[in-house]
């Protein structure tokens, strides 16, 4: 069956490098505060810097014991120089950026049951069934540093409570999306995107939104332009928080019924489904706090700031 997810979403984009070591801890607290909005599953995407020319692939397995055992050696044998770091049901594989497309083919052969959660030069994605506090603990998210991140806690509506049904959805390199709301034209859109060559792992409407943005960016749009296009092409209720390698975007549908609060200081830009998610951030007392306008794209980019 279908599809939508009702939930809590959070996002944190750091401007102050001094905060970067605390990204995982801050984002974890934000997400745990949103547990009531959806205790079924949770996930985070963390963007961190990597040495030039390197890339990483986050994979997930239902049977991590047998799938991840000897994975590094197996990849070496297949001609991919990789280092594998196992985290519970997920593993982050660091490789040369040049081998990013090759490793998917190799993985499909040597570990057919392993699912790629996301890949790119900076993103790591972790998501599982269970409330945020368990998911955060399982993957050691608190200890992770980074430049920006997004998170999601899910109340499944019309699709299964599974790891794959959890957010964030990643459909392109370093791209991922979390969604609160419910789309109403995703079946048609999914069929169109499939015709354009996109593939889908789930029946989830949010995955359609993620794939739509990926497809639009593949046509040469930047994230801001792709989000603007989404306002015309996606029907239904949505608040999206989206991450790219160096960017962070927020958009709400024109009706803007689903809650959204943002805060900005010299140190960060933060997003939460509710103000509660933001109350532990440093300096929140003096932050500029506002609700994103309907049908308005908000977009920050480290590349531009630098």
């Amino acid at each position: 069956m279908e599809m939508a997810a009702m939930c809590g979403i959070v996002g944190l984009f750091l401007k102050d490098k001094a905060l970067e070591p605390r990204l995982g801890a801050l984002l974890s607290d934000m997400l745990i505060t949103m547990t009531d909005r959806g205790p079924d599953s949770a996930g985070v995407a963390i963007y961190g810097d990597l040495a030039a020319g390197k890339a990483k692939v986050t994979v997930q397995s239902a049977d991590p014991q047998s799938d991840f055992d000897g994975l590094e050696t197996a990849l070496h044998k297949a001609g991919i120089s990789a280092s594998v770091m196992v985290k519970s049901t997920h593993a982050v594989i660091e490789i040369d950026a040049a081998q990013l497309s090759e490793i998917r083919t190799v993985l499909a052969e040597i570990r057919p049951n392993v699912r790629v959660m996301g890949s790119g030069e900076s993103v790591e994605i972790f998501k599982e069934i269970g409330p945020p506090k368990d998911v955060v603990a399982r993957f050691g998210v608190r200890a992770m540093g980074g430049t920006h991140g997004i998170g999601h806690t899910r109340m499944a509506t019309e699709s299964a409570v599974t790891t794959l049904g959890a957010h964030p959805f990643s459909t392109g390199a370093d791209q991922c999306l979390v969604h609160n709301g419910s789309l109403s034209n995703h079946n048609n859109l999914r069929r169109e995107l499939i015709r354009e060559g996109m593939t889908f792992e789930t029946q989830n409407d949010s995955e359609v939104a993620a794939a739509y943005l990926t497809a639009e960016m593949a046509k040469g749009k930047n994230l801001g332009e792709a989000l603007t296009g989404a306002l015309d092409d996606l029907d239904g209720f949505f608040t999206f928080v989206v991450g790219t390698k160096s960017g962070f975007g927020v958009v709400r549908d024109p009706i803007a019924c689903k809650p959204a609060v943002m805060a900005e200081t010299d140190q960060y830009v933060a997003f939460g489904s509710e103000y509660r998610a933001l109350v532990n951030l440093p300096g929140i007392e003096n932050a500029r706090v506002w609700e994103p306008e309907p049908a308005t794209v908000y977009f920050w980019d480290h590349g531009k700031a630098a």
């Binding site: 009702m6 009531d36 419910s182 019924c257």
Partner: peptide, 14 residues
């Protein structure tokens, strides 16, 4: 057709 001050199950819970 919709409630004036909530939409969806997450708001309904509140």
């Amino acid at each position: 057709c919709r409630h004036p001050d909530w939409t969806g199950p997450d708001d309904l819970e509140i």
